[in-house]
């Protein structure tokens, strides 16, 4: 019973992190119609920024600066690398995104070296919950991710800007005919995605207090998987896919106790789901425009 509870909480909090990252993938895909494969590396940049700004000895300031830094980076990448390619073939954009990803990883290694750096943001400790030992950081992660997802859902549904984002994702030309500045909406999308990735970086540091140049790669791929399972382009889908993948990862780790097996299980589930539902759980069948 205790084990079930702690696995459940760990799974949900890990799922929350995946969901936060998956939201960045899915929103950028829906609105800018591209796969931003450099998205995972924003997590890593967020981690390093927290590591650097922890020099202030104030975790909240470090987190805030990291979020701001990632937003600026995300928006800048979009302006410099992706915007000039609007209208270019999707393959060119995809390759550019992969290039940006490697560039960020290499820059991090040039600046901080290839060795893993340790950074402790805050020691939360653990509590006993109905007999189970639960890391408080997991509960904090779960609480914050749920709050962020709720806020994002309300933002998209009930604000003028949020609705404009749905409009742009559905029909870019029609949105422009409403007077919506599509480039502005894309910028905002990248800003939101990067802020969420920075927070994901923070949550990874709370789980394991170490940063490295490649720390964003695997979470990036996992979260992308989550976005695809949920139905890429769908915001609730990204949340569902993220939570599902996090749960699967924690449960399969509990059972097999070997990390590579859990990866294999997760990606097998992706393949299975895509075989049965190629558009993911909440994805729509959409005619791809030529």
């Amino acid at each position: 019973m205790e084990e079930i509870l702690s696995t459940l909480i760990n799974g949900l909090s890990l799922g929350g992190i995946y969901a936060m990252i998956a939201l960045g993938y899915t929103m950028v895909y829906g609105i800018a119609k591209m796969l931003n494969f450099a998205h995972g590396d924003i997590i890593m940049v967020g981690g390093y920024l927290i590591y650097v700004f922890m020099a202030t000895k104030n975790p909240l300031i470090a987190i805030l600066l990291a979020v701001v830094g990632c937003v600026i980076l995300g928006v800048t990448i979009e302006k410099i690398a992706y915007k000039p390619l609007r209208g270019a073939s999707p393959l060119a954009v995809l390759i550019t995104a992969i290039g940006v990803s490697y560039m960020l990883q290499s820059l991090a290694q040039i600046i901080f070296g290839s060795a893993t750096q340790m950074v402790t943001v805050y020691e939360f400790g653990a509590v006993k919950l109905m007999g189970a030992t639960v890391q408080i950081s997991s509960l904090v992660t779960l609480g914050v991710t749920v709050a962020v997802m709720l806020a994002l859902t309300l933002f998209v549904k009930f604000t003028r800007l949020g609705r404009a984002m749905i409009a742009v994702s559905e029909d870019r030309d029609a949105a422009q005919l409403m007077g919506i500045n599509v480039n502005g909406i894309i910028t905002i999308t990248f800003a939101i995605g990067s802020a969420l990735a920075a927070l994901a970086g923070l949550f990874y540091l709370l789980k394991a207090p170490a940063v490295s140049g490649t720390m964003g790669a695997m979470p990036g791929i996992k979260a992308f998987t989550a976005a695809v399972i949920g139905g890429i382009g769908s915001i609730p889908g990204a949340m569902l896919g993220g939570i599902l993948l996090g749960m699967v990862e924690c449960i399969s780790y509990k059972i097999t106790a070997i990390a590579p097996y859990t990866d294999a299980i997760e990606f097998s589930i992706l393949i299975l789901i895509l075989l049965v539902r190629p558009t993911g759980f909440l994805g729509k069948k959409r005619r791809e425009k030529v």
């Binding site: 609705r163 749905i166 409009a167 559905e170 029909d171 030309d173 029609a174 005919l177």
Partner: peptide, 10 residues
Amino acid sequence: PEGRRIFQEL
């Protein structure tokens, strides 16, 4: 626009 292009999901 041609084909109306209303926002179907809204």
